[in-house]
Design a protein around this nucleic acid. Structure first.
Length: 211
DNA sequence: AACGACTACAACCGCTCTGCC
DNA sequence: GGGCAGAGCGGTTGTAGTCGT
């Protein structure tokens, strides 16, 4: 289910009037092109000015997000490898929901992509593992129930699902406080080299033994 | 074939942080 | 020190594709 989705602009989907003619919703290819051109000239700074120069009816924030998550060079999209997945799981265990830090160790991956991947793939996986290990007896998987029961009998909101995912800390993280900078040398270019992780992979070994 | 539920992901929102004046 | 603007971050929402009945 990884088919590319082309979101239609909100204005195209609804008749909602635009607020001060600021566009929202999916970016059109022409918008991407304009934005990339302006950034090539002016650099990826001063997003408000970039938005104006590009003649886009977008706020600077939206331009920044689009650039960082989609248009930036060297962005890898999809196909998260097993190694990357493992790294995300381990880093999340250590850092919690600090997606930008996690993404910073995954070349070509954005915080948004890591976050989405976690919420849609990994949290389910981890919840299953937790259940298998018998961590929460009697605490049935609401998400799984939903596949077998009618929606009106089991109310599981997206919020509930997400909070259960986001609260996952590997069982210990919440009591583990450390200075991230002690562990991360962000000047290191070879971010997928797992050597940098060794100081705390040992510590991590105490955890669930997930790999 | 139709319909509703589920899923994936792009994009938005609100808050915090940082730097400048 | 206070106020402001820009940047960055995490949380959340909206939408369309896919799947199951």
């Amino acid at each position: 289910m990884t088919a590319k989705r082309e979101h239609k602009p909100i204005e195209a989907m609804t008749n909602m009037p635009t607020k001060k003619e600021i566009s929202k919703g999916a970016w059109a290819p022409e918008e991407d092109k304009k934005l990339a051109e302006v950034i090539a000239i002016h650099g990826a700074k001063r997003w408000k000015i970039i938005a104006e120069k590009a003649g886009l009816n977008r706020c600077g924030k939206s331009c920044r997000l689009r650039w960082l998550n989609y248009l930036r060079p060297n962005i890898k999209r999809g196909n998260i490898s097993d190694q990357e997945e493992d790294l995300i799981i381990r880093l999340h265990k250590l850092l919690g929901n600090r997606w930008s830090l996690i993404a910073g160790r995954l070349p070509g991956r954005t915080d948004n992509e890591v976050k989405n991947y976690w919420n849609s793939h990994l949290c389910k996986k981890i919840n299953q593992k937790e259940k298998q290990s018998g961590a929460s007896i009697g605490e049935e998987s609401k998400g799984e129930k939903r596949t077998t029961e009618k929606a009106d009998t089991v109310e599981v909101t997206r919020e509930e699902k997400q909070s259960s995912c986001n609260n996952y800390t590997g069982g210990e993280e919440s009591n583990t406080s450390f200075n991230v900078d002690d562990f991360f040398d962000f000047s290191n270019e070879d971010r997928l080299n797992l050597e940098w992780m060794s100081p705390f992979l040992e510590m991590d070994g105490r955890f669930t033994g997930m790999s």
